[in-house]
Amino acid sequence: MRILYHHRTRGRHVEGVHIRGIVGALRELGHDVDVMSFPGADPEREVETTTTGSRSRLAGLVTKLPGVVFEMFELLYNVVTLARMSRAWRVAQPQLIYERYSLFLFATIWLARRRGIPLVLEINDSALVERVRPLKMRLLARRIERWCFRHATGLVFISTYFRETAIAAYGEISPCVISPNAVDLPRFDPSRFDREVLRTQRGLSGRTVCGHVGAFAHWHGVDAFVEAIAQRLDSVPDLALVFVGDGKTLPAVRELIEARGLSDRVLLPGRVPHDEVASWIACMDYAVLPNSNHYGSPMKLFEFMGMGVAVVAPDYAPVAEVIADGHTGWLFPRGDAAACVERVLELAQQAEERRRVGQAARDYIANERQWRNNAEQLLTLVPAEACP
């Protein structure tokens, strides 16, 4: 089947990982997939070439516009989409459109309905949830979203909570599946790495290592977690922490670590290329996700679990869909930083428990949460007559 994957993101970081995962899985299943990206974006390479650099810089400037102006640009992008999609239909003649949903974007669905082509929407964002950039034209965004959710051929939600939120707000919506994030298991394979060599190179030899990979942002709770556990690290002398990533709260965390004299116990390597993430996870005995949100499916959970590294995580519904407490990970009451710290400290002294749960986590990923699983799920939404 000829599939056109369309997205309006810059295709970087987690977005790029997800796009490459789905596109790669569809191709492995034998489908021809073309990717139509935001001008200047190239998620399949995750680099910006000199020929698209000016457009990429323009995209960066647009994201810094005031709220209402930025949302007007999002709305106007429908005109660009209509023109680009019309050309794509003449050249590629797709039999299925798979689109990563973006607020205010309705042109693809409108055009697909006119052409009689099935279109499946992947829902990672919504006008119904709290967003990093506050939504100004909320009422208009929800009206467009309701129309999109009702007129797409099918919907792929990243969590049950997300689907239930949409149904509660919009009533009847298109057929849908729940498809949390996934992982490229061959890339996230602990057998690829010499764990002890890596730990020695990074000053972690002989330590029990608890780690985290992700952005240093207030809503992820890394700063609050580090501040809380820093006061108790002396109770577990062998425990070391590794927090990979950067963001607004990283300078404050660095300052705290230096002030407490814990630089030899808490490693902060900053952001690393995605190709290097697995090597850092290979150094860890277990991991921690200090906070999340009500609707998201954190990519880092799947990458940790794929590496056989189980995670201490908050009991939000989407997280609990992936982690069975005491079996494929450990849950603590969301918002309870003290409970999170307590569980991390307890597990530092339970090597067999960490190994048992880590292996169960990897088995779960291998059986249910590879990108192939997501691709197979989304294809169930396509009418049989559309498939050759």
Rank of each mutant, 00 (worst) to 15 (best):
V197L: 09
G245T: 02
P251T: 02
V244F: 06
A224L: 07
I178W: 00
H218D: 14
I167M: 10
P175Y: 06
D238A: 14
P180F: 03
L262Y: 06
P273S: 08
L250M: 11
D264M: 00
L185N: 11
R138N: 07
R187V: 10
P269M: 15
R207W: 10
K248A: 10
A182V: 04
L250W: 04
H220L: 06
A228I: 00
L198Q: 13
R187G: 13
G270D: 04
E196H: 10
L267H: 09
S263I: 00
D184M: 14
H220Q: 10
R163W: 12
G203R: 01
G214M: 07
A259H: 10
L241M: 13
A141N: 09
G214I: 09
E258W: 07
L239E: 02
C210R: 07
V183R: 13
I173V: 09
G171N: 03
H220A: 04
V177I: 04
I229V: 10
R265V: 14
R202Y: 12
L198A: 04
L139T: 11
R199L: 15
V222P: 11
L250S: 10
E145P: 09
V244N: 04
V272T: 13
P190C: 02
P186E: 02
F193M: 06
V266M: 12
V222N: 01
V244W: 02
A259D: 14
V156E: 04
S159D: 07
A168Y: 01
F162H: 14
E227Y: 08
L140Y: 06
I167G: 09
V177Y: 01
S235W: 00
R192Q: 13
D223V: 04
V209D: 01
L262A: 05
L241P: 13
D189N: 11
P190V: 01
G261C: 06
R142D: 02
H274L: 00
H218C: 06
A166E: 09
L139F: 12
V209N: 02
S179V: 03
R202A: 15
V226R: 12
R143C: 11
S263W: 00
A168K: 06
Q231K: 12
V156Y: 01
R207L: 14
E196I: 10
R199K: 12
A217E: 06
V222F: 02
R187N: 11
G211Q: 12
A252W: 13
A228E: 02
P237Q: 13
V213T: 12
A215L: 08
V242C: 05
F149Q: 10
G171S: 06
E164K: 12
A230G: 15
E258I: 08
E258A: 15
R232L: 03
R192E: 14
A228Q: 03
A182S: 09
S179K: 10
D189M: 01
A215K: 03
I257Y: 11
S263Y: 01
D234E: 08
L262F: 08
L233C: 05
S235K: 00
P180M: 09
T153L: 05
R199P: 03
P186T: 02
R138S: 10
G247M: 08
A182N: 08
N181K: 00
V156Q: 03
R260D: 06
T165I: 12
R254A: 10
S235F: 00
L185I: 04
G211A: 08
G206I: 00
F193I: 12
N181I: 04
R187I: 10
E255T: 12
L139K: 15
L262E: 12
E227P: 08
P273W: 09
Q201P: 14
T165V: 13
E196W: 05
R195L: 02
G211H: 08
R143Y: 07
